[in-house]
Design a protein around this nucleic acid. Structure first.
Lengths: 262, 262
DNA sequence: CTTGCCCACTCGTCTATACGAGTATGCACG
DNA sequence: CGTGCATACTCGTATAGACGAGTGGGCAAG
């Protein structure tokens, strides 16, 4: 039993029309914002708060669930409720697919992670031909079947990104793009070797709450949205040669774009 | 009393180790995904589900709260729980601040919304000098005080975006930029007239759950993240002349960027 | 000293009940 | 005909209790 450090949390205002569980959530949120509870630190247990505020346990749990929804805290069964630490963020610069970054052998993800001192990892590789979804078909210009390359990226064991590349079969079939390992410089390097000179990319960005599947594959804590990025690569003839659908844990990413003012 | 349409929802699996409220949430989610409940449609009431599944009300509420956290449904006091309709999305193209869009008189937001047939509105205008936060100061190159321009954008009465522009005082003070109405073409047009020729923009994008304040100002439903965009404008001398901090309702936006492949 | 068990503490799930408050509908009254 | 109230239905909030299950520390047996 850890008796509540005094002064950390105030009292309830019975005259307020703000719901009790909201008042409790407010006080905890403020305490966190002010740094009275630090990152990774354990909050008072449900029992502590029940005693402190003189409310029932469900009320306390209700306030915790508010904070969980905001992504501020996370609960660990048998241990307690903790202030959610912010993971190291990965910056994605808009020039990350520029030709000059494609010269060396290793993939951008590996190089970048190594430089940042974290341990990168790529898994659940799947490369297969399949039927194109409506959306993908539209983006690639009415193709029926595509080559799909699926992979998951991890940093220090934590999954941060799940991506699928789709390519028209007439481009990818029988090439190294259809292999597990696309070779140095990645599939963009292979595309250019095959004569599909890249002209520009278009990226579409959305943010939303993850589906249950995404929660699983990215091991997302509750209250963490995902960034959904769809990139289409066009060659110099204006043809869409690849669509890459990426779902990222939003708390692990900052996207950065450089735009001309012209 | 609306007796549950039969066949819509299945039974519970008592042998499963999946929590009952999760099983209920799963069934509702699947029914929604399959279109058995359409956008805006009312789900069975708590009482209906209590009867259908033979569980207590709190268990049903628990499953609803799961779906709310996923942004799939929203509850309306006194009415019911409804499938959350997707609002019309606003596409932001990366060239939206290009010079050629700055020629005409009206702001980009108004023009674009009119074209889309919605009713645009800008409110809660505030223009004042204030102390720069640490972050803003860094981005603008160690300025102490700044001119802050705050405004909120609404589409058909619904707030979709809240933005604050920060400018160094030596640039903005005493100019039309410090007025409520910055004039045709917006502040970027004024900056260029003042001799600060814009060279490029840098945009940083994050996604996260909203703070309680943001929930209020953007009238966000639960389970809707925000997109946080910070744009810095640089002049041809490499000086940062403006920082614009924008928070958008994530369900109302798609950001789109064109990138050269060079 | 090490192993293994017990126990205390933690959150997870579920039941049952109660009352409050917002909404909509229909009916009675003016 | 219209107003206003009663009523039934909705979700919101809160209480009290029960059991389960994960975690970690201490203690006893080997």
């Amino acid at each position: 039993m850890s008796p509540l450090r005094s002064g950390l949390l105030g009292d309830l205002d019975p005259t307020s029309d703000r719901a009790v569980f909201r008042q409790i959530a407010d006080q905890l949120r403020e305490a966190i914002d002010r740094g009275r509870f630090k990152e990774g630190e354990k909050l008072p247990s449900e029992a502590d708060l029940v005693e402190h505020y003189g409310v029932s346990r469900m009320t306390v749990r209700n306030s915790f669930s508010v904070l969980q929804g905001e992504g501020l805290v996370h609960a660990e069964h048998g241990k307690g409720v903790f202030v959610r630490p912010r993971p190291p963020v990965r910056r994605l610069a808009s020039d990350r697919f520029a030709r000059r970054h494609r010269e060396q052998g290793k993939s951008a993800f590996i190089v970048e992670a190594d430089a940042a001192g974290s341990h990168p990892q790529v898994d659940s590789l799947e490369v297969k031909e399949e039927k194109a979804s409506q959306d993908i078909s539209t983006r690639l210009g009415s193709v029926r079947r595509v080559l799909a390359r699926r992979r998951r990226y991890l940093l220090d064991g934590k999954p941060v990104e799940f991506a699928t590349s789709y390519l028209p079969l007439d481009i990818a079939r029988g090439t190294q793009i259809a292999e597990s390992n696309p070779g140095p410089g990645g599939i963009y390097a292979r595309l250019e070797e095959l004569g599909h000179h890249l002209d520009h990319f278009e990226e579409e960005i959305r943010a939303r709450m993850p589906s249950p599947t995404e929660v699983k594959t990215l091991r997302l804590a509750s209250g963490v949205p995902v960034i959904h990025l769809i990139r289409t690569a066009y060659d110099t003839e204006g043809r869409a040669v690849e669509v890459c659908d990426t779902v990222m844990a939003a708390d692990a990413y900052v996207l950065s774009y450089q735009l001309p003012a012209t």
